[in-house]
Every structure is written in structure tokens, then in C-alpha cells.
Amino acid sequence: MNGSFPVNGFIEVTAMLMMSAGLVLAMVRLVRGPSLPDRVVALDLITMLGLGMLAVYSMSTERTAYLDVGIVLTLVTFIATISFAYFIEKGTGRGGGN
């Protein structure tokens, strides 16, 4: 466990850079839309990236508590996406529920 992951090493920095770039791109989609579901998809992706970044950070700091944060993050976002979908469909005025 000690030092088996190159702390501040190439892999960690590269992975973090890739995921940060992904975060920026997801933000672009979040701002541009054009529809509300597009923004929800972007938010979903941001959560996934957050989960990945927390996992990498937990490895470089050797603290497993960050993993729990990531799990809770995905749980909450799933509920959020479901509610978004529910209210988007309700908001179309007709029907709803299935």
C-alpha cells in the first residue's frame, strides 16, 4: 500500500488532467443546453467525473473516506436525475405517470 501508487506521479496527474478537461467540456454542455434534458445529462456526467476524481484523490492521499463521499454523490445524483425526468414529463402539461 505504501508508495505502490506513484503519489504525485505521472499517472495520477494525467488522470486528473483528463478528468478536469472532461469537467470543462461537461460544463460547456451544461451552459449551452439547448434543452433541459441536455443539461441533466451534463450534470450526470459531472457526477461521474467527480466520482472518478474522488477515487484518484483517495489513492494519492491514502484516505478511503473520499470513496464514501463519491458513493453518496452518485446516490444523490441518481435520485436527482429521476426527479428531473419526472418533473420534465409532468411539465409537458398532459399525461404523466406510467
Partner: peptide, 10 residues
């Protein structure tokens, strides 16, 4: 769920 809702949203 999101795809279905988006379809109804147009």
C-alpha cells in the same frame, strides 16, 4: 426515464 421525458418535451 430521461429519454422518455425528453421525447415528450419535444
Amino acid at each position: 426515464l430521461l429519454g422518455r421525458a425528453a421525447y415528450f418535451l419535444g
